[in-house]
Amino acid sequence: MERVTDFKEKHDAKIKEIKYSLFLVRNSPLTILGALIILILILVAVFAPYIAPYDPEKTNILARLKPPSKDHPFGTDDLGRDIFSRVIWGSRISLQIGFTVVFFATAIGTVLGLIAGYFRGWIDEILMRITDMFFAIPSLILAMAISAALQTRSIYTTMLAVTFVWWPAYVRIVRSSVLSLVESQFVEAARSLGASNRRIMFKHILPNSLAPLLVQMTLDLGAVILVAAGLSFIGFGAGPNTPEWGRMVAEGRNYMTTAWWTITFPGLAIFITVLGFNLLGDGLRDILDPRLRR
């Protein structure tokens, strides 16, 4: 009991802070909806083997293109695979791609953005011109080109291709907040107290630029999933039997007029996932906005 009060006293400020954040979240139903969608999505992905009634890759030609029914809630596709199971397993792939790509893009972008914004000069110039090059080409087209050049097709090549086109955005975000933070007095104060460049970059500047980074990461989770699905849709994604949402839409589009369920359910899955991340990201932006905070 004593320990509990001790802990409470010691972390009083932080607890207050968290409580206030929760208060802001409570007042924003859309954020809660977004968070809820993402939470359900993650649970579905984690427990996919227990939820999915069928093996997502098992074909059954006799039961092909069956409309939704009690046995197959989302119907079956042209090879008789259960679409419900495939959508459920597909959540794993989509989340895996989303998180991996955003993680690596953030890691690369943050380090390069810190370096560019902190040191300025020629290194900044070079890094920024490189990111400009990336922005000059539509990212989906570039990702297609990279996928095509990689020869093999799997979700890993998709991740690689999307990461490759995604990191420049993070360099920009981090650099822009570093540029203003470098001028701030607490950075000069830290330097006058003997902090090294690396220390200032990672201990003083980075934590102060986390808010916009976090928002962008959340929004990008949705965007990355959409781009990855797009890549699969045009055939640059995972291999033939993989239950990937984009691929499922692509495979179903020949039967669109006669079997609407083949594209509707995987499409809805993409839609709801992206919506969830966007709602959560927008909500986070509002909550982390210092002007809204007290």
Partner: peptide
Amino acid sequence: SMIFQEPMTSLNPVFT
């Protein structure tokens, strides 16, 4: 050591 004019901004806002 050095102290600066603006005490408002000499401390890092995100740490205690």
